[in-house]
Amino acid sequence: MDSTKLSEYKFTDGLRDGIPIGLGYLSVSFSFGIAAAGKGVSIFSALLISMTNLTSAGQLAGLGIIAAGGTLIEMILTQLVINMRYALMSISLSQKLDSSFTVGQRLGTSFGMTDEIFAVAAGKKGDIGVKYMYGLILIPFLCWSLGTFLGAAAGEILPDMLKSALGIAIYGMFLAIFIPPARKSVGVFSVVAFSAAMSCCFKYISIFSGISSGFSIIICALTASVLGALIFPKKEDEDDA
């Protein structure tokens, strides 16, 4: 076991890895800010939502509930379903923390568990430490807040074409995370391919159209990773891939 080993990743490594996430977040949160303003939510409220939630799908759904004057129960259930994938990610990432992580630091860093931050942290080789996590979270958090503020305050600042092109940044980053390991491991390749194929089924087959995208991700990810564990179990010495 390597649980006594401390991670070698520094705060600045986290900052650097957070830059592409932050760039992607700028455009997404910018459009959230515009949407919030469009629904009559004040700049301050929009900023408060972004700074306390740090999640795209959940915030957009929450905004809809606020605008429609929905109940708090509806808010709770919606957030639970859309954000349940974070529980899965938290369990997964908890296995990669080095031994220096305290409970207080877990309380602090778990706030920043977004799809992208999780994906980058999970993609690092070996264990990760708290400094790396704080570095990784900082720039995306600031960009998420800034983008929301700008979107809500100033509306259309970026030309449409630039906003559109920035929308693909996050996905490009995802590809950079999973393509290299998928090339090396037939297990990873199969899991990604199966999960992606299933995700297409949810998107394009009409009987699944009632399933929210957050819930769809949970189903695809659970099914694909269970199948992966059954069909392509790793040898123990490959743990820190």
Binding site: R85, S92, F118, F178, V192, K234
Partner: peptide, 23 residues
């Protein structure tokens, strides 16, 4: 071992589902 294997695959599965076809 099963859970460890599964959790190892979770991030890749999540990314695959989130990227395709959304990109």
């Amino acid at each position: 071992k099963f859970l460890r294997n599964m959790l190892y695959y979770v991030p890749y599965a999540v990314l695959g589902a989130m990227t395709i076809p959304a990109i």
